[in-house]
């Protein structure tokens, strides 16, 4: 597989914080690559170094075989970057915002591309509307259109769906899937684990380094615990009780349901069910589920902070 990003031993420090710490990573052509990790892990710093906004302290990286330090300007032309704090010009219309970004990137002929992009984003009817009058979801779509106007080959998206409502979030992901089909390589960070799940590969970043990087189905296959989902009430009471059972390794509340993580060698499904039933809890549904990346993420983090 062709590598479009190669990072070797990259470090970036702020005073005494090693935001990116001797990091190695590769991204392949046409893939949707996801960076996840706790707040402060260094995801945004890494993305900003790759986009040429921050200078690395040591190590090297290349994008499309171009050197991250020497060929910064050449690289910039081929990448689109949607920053976490990307702000549109609220007092400009949708059309004007796109024209503005086209000029910034020195794109002369952009009228056709603009129409194509607006239609792709589903905001073609609102061309004359001021950006500040758009809903949060539409703003994100407009921002995405602005980062695409110079037809980049690779997109860096830093938490693009934060603050976006569930319906718009789905629409945004449909758009990303289309972009990927068109052959754009995407590197995305997100706090939503269900989004990570839809990416080709997921890298888990912690304290400035990549702890693991793999295909979601492999990450899950490697996870050797079982997970039981219990929809029940009163949830906090059940939680507290189940916590007293030592053979259960970890318990998480997800809204109205508990996820019990256990090792079948130590405790059986039947034994857990009996524990649940013998108390006076309301149990609505019990089933075994496949682990989600969220389950695995939390388990990983618990291990780290427990160390």
């Amino acid at each position: 597989m062709e590598k479009v990003i190669e990072i070797r031993n990259l470090s970036k420090n702020f005073k005494d914080i090693n935001a990116v710490n001797e990091l190695d990573m590769e991204v392949f052509k046409d893939e949707m690559f996801c960076l996840v990790g706790p707040d402060g892990a260094g995801k945004t710093t890494l993305v900003r170094v790759l986009c040429g906004i921050l200078k690395p302290d040591s190590g090297c990286f290349s994008i499309f075989g171009l050197d991250g330090r020497k060929d910064r300007n050449k690289i910039k032309r081929r990448i689109g970057y949607l920053s976490q704090k990307f702000s549109l010009y609220g007092d400009l219309t949708i059309d004007e915002n796109i024209s503005f970004f086209a000029k910034v990137h020195n794109v002369k002929e952009f009228k056709d591309e603009k129409d194509v992009l607006l239609e792709k984003m589903g905001i073609e009817k609102f061309g004359n509307r001021l950006a500040e009058r758009l809903s949060g979801g539409m703003k994100k779509k407009l921002a995405l259109a602005c980062t695409l106007i110079h037809s980049p080959d690779i997109l860096f998206l830093d938490e693009p769906t934060t603050g976006v409502d569930p319906v718009s979030r789905r629409e945004f992901w449909e758009i990303l899937a289309d972009l990927k089909r068109e052959g754009i390589t995407i590197l995305i960070t997100t706090p939503y684990m269900d989004e990570a799940e839809r990416c080709d590969r997921v890298a888990f970043m912690y304290n400035g380094s990549i702890l693991s990087c793999d295909y979601p189905h492999i990450i899950k296959e490697k996870f050797d615990k079982r997970i039981m989902e219990v929809v029940c009430s009163p949830i906090r009471e059940v939680y507290k009780y189940m916590e007293t059972i030592e053979k259960i390794e970890s318990i998480h509340i997800f809204g109205d349901r508990l996820h019990l993580v256990f090792d079948e060698v130590k405790i059986s499904v039947q034994e857990i069910k009996e524990e649940l039933i013998k108390r006076d809890f309301n149990i609505y549904n019990i089933r075994l589920i496949s682990p989600s990346l969220e389950n695995i993420f939390i388990m990983k983090m618990e291990k780290r902070t427990g160390e």
């Binding site: 990790g37 706790p38 707040d39 976490q84 938490e159 934060t162 603050g163 706090p191 684990m193 998480h252 509340i253 969220e294 993420f297 939390i298 983090m301 618990e302 902070t305």
Partner: peptide, 9 residues
């Protein structure tokens, strides 16, 4: 908004 799963919990 924008907070990791552990911090949310």
């Amino acid at each position: 908004s924008g907070v990791d799963p552990i911090s949310r919990r």
